[in-house]
Design a protein around this nucleic acid. Structure first.
Lengths: 353, 353
DNA sequence: CTGAAAGCGCTTACAG
DNA sequence: CTGAAAGCGCTTACAG
């Protein structure tokens, strides 16, 4: 009933354990016939390598760590994470690398987890999500010389390799689209102010709106939660000059905004156009369905996994760009009332001519 | 630059590695003074135990596995999972047990993962989610004599310990509430037909509705996705005798239903009352906010973790009951139009007397 | 191509 | 209380 070891195989095959090891690992050093015999015996007695023993010998954990530093409350509603993790995990599993997951409160605890896991040689590398501006995790990882890949960047990733998506271009594209529809009053409800990509997106938003000569380009910062998204929306719509379009930094807040418009009697998209910053099933669930900036999040996770495995294998990797998010127009965006009237008049004029 | 081992500590302290091991593990066999000296040295040179070496010696992995067998698409939108995992992980982390996460396509792949992890002694136990009726994973785990705890049950969990919540009572309570409001036509949009708790809930729904003498208690099965939730809602509302209240098996479908009612011009809660089977931030995000069956999912995860750790420690555990979900009334439920009229007449009558 | 042996970094009886 | 040694199950130079 005890689990079989290579010693048991060696005994049965009448060879040394070294030979068994070579055979099992497809190394030269055994004849094809003995290799076949050894493999057959291993199969027969149901041998499986001891993970700990192998780890100890080759000093490799075959595992990577992911430490999420967001409250469970926010992680839960945000479809992004589970989707990213799925893609990440699928790629890792295909190379028999395990994923260790930990959820912590802040970066200090994340760093503690890195230190412990790495010190124990329990993981071969980590992936860093939710990159902050001046992120305290980066210098620690650099110091530990720990294989790591940052999701986001490249600004703020320090010397660590990163997999990123051009957020600035995506935001600019969204603004361009709204302007093309005729909007002049566009606001943005952003995520956590500490996040590097919030900074990037805000800069891009400002650049794009001022390029188009828009003046009232308000930005409100939130924690990504539906509550704060709703609050920001109420405040924008109650202002002296309410925007005719709002771009949200995720889908959860955009959905919450839809609730606020219903509550305030604001019609979407007639009175207000809404763009969700992430696209998930949520955006198609609600009515009207939400125009969104879409990306294949699962593939992004897979891309990240492959990059980390390269880094662990000692391949020199710097920054890798993933696809830019693209706009998926749905029912929540349309020309603003005024502009539509203008278009109609124009059409009428043309028709009359 | 090489990582320090207990050998290094022993050399510095001028003792044997055995003594160091005893000191580090708080075992008797060393005097307090040498223990203190050894601990100080360990601290000083930044020693951390090699996870693999320790695992190999004590033959314990200090890790548990979680294999999710749902498509990423569904995992992502469902806030339940991330919340459950957070609670689970927090409890595991507090005892320095790691969580290995894998996402697979079906139960066969899940079983394969169990076999591999267990064979490699990479985990000490697993937790089984989404228990199916006649679940193929159960007999395998029983055969492997692998520590495991089932989330759900106790029906269908076989001889495995489980942590469950009384779904039947929760559903019955929801039906009672709707009936008390005056509803007589109540439908249920259920989740995956293969899931054990779908069966349990359907039985409870039938029992409750027939106890109240309701006749048109339709049940429609779905895959939990918003798409299918929306489709089921459309079909119910387009029927010859549309229900005045619908109970959904999760929150995602209830949100989707809200989209459908908007699209069809059905007013919630005037024309239709909606109850969501899970409560998450989503239910408060939308407008009208959704009445829901609420539970502390994170605590449920923690409870599950503690139970599994007990099982791993050899404690005899059978089935453990977690809290029953309770109804959180919000804006999506109200008396049906007819009944409210009736109540008004009644009041009028009373007032007139 | 094969065997005997050292080593990975711990834990734990077993003698002193 | 302490030291020397075997053992956990592998991998990998090193001789034949």
């Amino acid at each position: 009933m005890k689990r079989p070891t290579i010693g048991d195989i060696a005994k049965r095959a009448g060879v040394s354990i070294g030979a068994v090891s070579y055979a099992l690992n497809n190394q030269p050093g055994v004849s094809e016939t003995t290799r076949a015999r050894i493999l057959a015996i291993a199969e027969e007695i149901g041998w499986q390598p001891s993970f700990a023993a192998r780890s100890l010998s080759v000093s490799r954990a075959n595992a990577v760590g992911l430490v999420l530093a967001r409250p469970a409350r926010l992680l839960g509603v945000e479809p992004f994470f589970m989707q990213f993790i799925s893609g990440l995990e699928a790629e890792l599993a295909s190379r028999s690398v395990a994923l260790l997951l930990q959820v912590v409160e802040d970066h200090d605890h994340a760093i503690e987890a890195f230190r412990r896991w790495w010190g124990e040689r329990r993981i071969d590398g980590v992936i860093v999500m939710d990159l902050f501006h001046q992120d305290s995790r980066i210098p620690v990882l650099e110091l530990l010389r720990m294989p790591a890949v940052v999701v986001g960047g490249p600004e703020g990733a320090g010397s660590l390799p990163c997999v990123w998506s051009n957020d600035a271009a995506a935001v600019a594209g969204a603004v361009d689209y709204l302007v093309a529809l005729g909007h002049r009053d566009i606001a943005r409800v952003a995520g956590l102010s500490g996040l590097e990509h919030t900074v990037t997106r805000s800069h891009a938003f400002e650049a794009a709106t001022s390029r188009h000569g828009l003046e009232h380009a308000t930005v409100i910062l939130t924690d990504y939660s539906g509550e704060q998204g709703a609050r920001a929306t109420r405040s924008l719509l109650s202002g002296r000059r309410p925007p005719t379009a709002i771009i949200y930094d995720n889908d959860v807040m955009a959905v919450a905004a839809l609730g606020v418009t219903a509550e305030m009697g604001v019609s979407v998209p007639d009175d207000l156009s809404i763009i969700a910053g992430d696209d998930s099933a949520l955006c198609r669930l609600v009515h009207p369905s939400l125009t969104a900036l879409a990306r294949d999040i699962s593939a992004y996770g897979g891309h990240t996994a492959r990059t980390l495995l390269k880094v662990i294998d000692g391949v020199e990797v710097s920054s890798v760009e993933d696809h830019v998010a693209y706009l998926v127009p749905r029912a929540s965006t349309a020309p603003p009332r005024g502009a539509r009237g203008a278009v109609s008049e124009l059409e009428a004029g043309v028709a009359g001519a």
